[in-house]
Design a protein around this nucleic acid. Structure first.
Lengths: 332, 332
DNA sequence: TCTAGTGTTGAAAACGTTCTCGACATCGTT
DNA sequence: AACGATGTCGAGAACGTTTTCAACACTAGA
């Protein structure tokens, strides 16, 4: 059984209050008493319960990260956040539901309400759909899926990145370029689609709505729209998928249909998750330095905790084209 | 301000107990009352505090994962664990200190004590140094850094994997093979070193203690021993690093010294973290399917929570050689 | 009409902490 | 000798829940 503060107090022959003082290094306990209590603490291996402590006191020195699920994107973000936290004295708690998000709108509000005000001093929301949460504790949103808000925000240049991806395909000679979109209620998805259309327009290529399918960012939701695109009579020679997970599925579907990438089909993604380098062929994609987003968001959050009245910041990180081997030039 | 159960009760004109019953779907509240309370809950956006709830009640439906830091290895593990949890109704909480582990022995015991018995129904310990923790709640250790114990365990075939790596180098014609070890107090590191020596012995190559340096698994701790190996007068033609992070640093150090990999030096790693495919050249390594370890460990933990008296299991997952481009045959 | 049951509700204890407040020594000062 | 200052300590409230227990109002059966 786990030792409680009461056990320590009883064994040391002092009150609970005194043990609490020793544990937290508060002023006002005699040296003799202190060392005696400390000895009992070591002996029993007592450690204060994070839960009870945070229920009572305002400050916990824990920052929370709320994610819908732990998948490549959020995992990258976590690495960056952990790097930012290192040495600041804060600890990290990541909270994730079972990944059943589709049928569960407002999860971020619910989870936030579960943690905030008690467990954590501040919270980082990863790809939230709603950002108008009202809370006393600082919150920063990473890659929010809706327009700018009063909340501090870190995201990346979705528009420019999507344009760069499309322009690259155009430079390679592609004209029939399919777009596998994310959910249209998500801001990043809309911006990427906008970038795709903008690049087409600038190149003087007419926009064909038939070449756009809605994918939804997850493995499961990407497969059938990808198949639809590849079954068109005028099959696109290239597909720009709105994130890497979708792009990887697109390559898989293409293979299942007997198509070779990049000989028969060029595929480009968005995100540059580590997995994208592991595919055959390695995926050409847009790097949005997810780790940096996590790093900056965590730094921002810590700053916000220490300086609560600073006004909201919107940070936008650059994107960059990463050429690997999933695209090739159209033979003219 | 965050709404509490008291706010809901006051506004609905019922007692706190009744609200609690409605929230948890307990039997014994009149339909009319229930819907009235539910309306107030929706209106106020009330969500019960995870902290307060878990302080009081035994069951939380949360499983905890305790990691020293979030780096490539643990991040992979998390992905697997999240996959295993999906759809089970459990939620996931990952707890990590600031990554200041070296000067902080017994972190796993401390963190466990912080969470267990309160916040989580069961806990997964990632690469713990001590495994003799005593706790009432179920615990499973992943890749424990010490010998087998009474605690359920998931690890992988460190010995066989290390032998495979060394044998591969030998097959390529290498004879002077350096080994960049992990910390000698860690079980996995010892097993990998054992595999290295065993493979040498079987091939009839005498073991040279001078070709072994202690690295310690982290980026910082790997650099100087790697440099030492490369500065030997009889420089090894190949280096087997005990994990991918060390191997990547080894390649970097080699480059800084003007050596080309794999022309001047072959490097092989261990783990197959996603990052290992991103290096130039891509790293040849031993795949220990970290995600699977996380997946199996989480499954095991859930089983243990539901069936507490089942006897401890030790699961060992296979390893596999992944050939990329960081090794080449010695010209004879 | 009484009684036993059933359905609905609230009061209050408990979980493990932190922290305020007051109590009691002890000590130096006048 | 009296008094305030200082040092050391414990009692108890509070944090937001869950859960036990008892209370109350009915209804149905005798």
């Amino acid at each position: 059984m786990r030792a409680t503060i009461g056990d320590v107090a009883a064994q040391a022959g002092v009150s609970i209050a005194t043990v609490s003082r020793v544990v937290n290094g508060r002023y006002g306990v005699a040296p003799g008493t202190s060392s005696r209590v400390q000895a009992v603490i070591d002996d029993l291996g007592y450690e204060s319960s994070l839960v009870a402590r945070s229920l009572r006191s305002r400050r916990t020195n824990v920052i929370g990260i709320i994610v819908a699920d732990i998948e490549p994107f959020s995992a990258e973000l976590l690495k960056g956040a952990a790097r930012a936290i290192r040495g600041t004295g804060y600890e990290l708690i990541v909270y994730s539901g079972g990944g059943h998000v589709e049928d569960d709108a407002g999860w971020e509000r619910r989870y936030l309400s579960r943690l905030s005000g008690t467990l954590t001093d501040g919270t980082m929301l990863v790809t939230p759909t709603v950002v108008d949460v009202s809370t006393s504790a600082p919150v920063v949103a990473v890659d929010p899926h809706t327009g700018s808000s009063a909340m501090p925000t870190v995201d990346s240049e979705n528009l420019q990145g999507a344009m760069a991806a499309t322009e690259y395909l155009i430079e390679l000679g592609h004209r029939r370029i399919g777009f596998l979109a994310g959910r249209s209620d998500l801001e990043s998805a809309r911006r990427r689609e906008h970038g795709y259309r903008e690049a087409l327009t600038r190149a003087g290529i007419p926009f064909d709505p038939n070449l756009v399918r809605v994918g939804g960012y997850t493995e499961e939701s990407a497969r059938s729209p990808a198949r639809e695109l590849l079954q068109l009579t005028a099959r696109p020679t290239a597909i720009f998928a709105a994130n890497d997970v979708s792009a990887i599925q697109t390559m898989r579907v293409a293979n299942e249909m007997g198509l070779e990438v990049p000989q028969d089909l060029s595929v480009i993604g968005f995100d540059n998750i580590p997995e994208s380098a592991l595919t055959t062929p390695p995926l050409t994609t847009i790097d949005q330095s997810i780790q940096e987003m996590g790093y900056e968001a965590a730094k921002l959050l810590v700053a916000l905790i220490n300086e609560p009245d600073s006004h909201p910041i919107h940070l936008t990180l650059p994107t960059e084209l990463v050429v690997r081997q999933s695209c090739r030039a159209i033979p003219t």
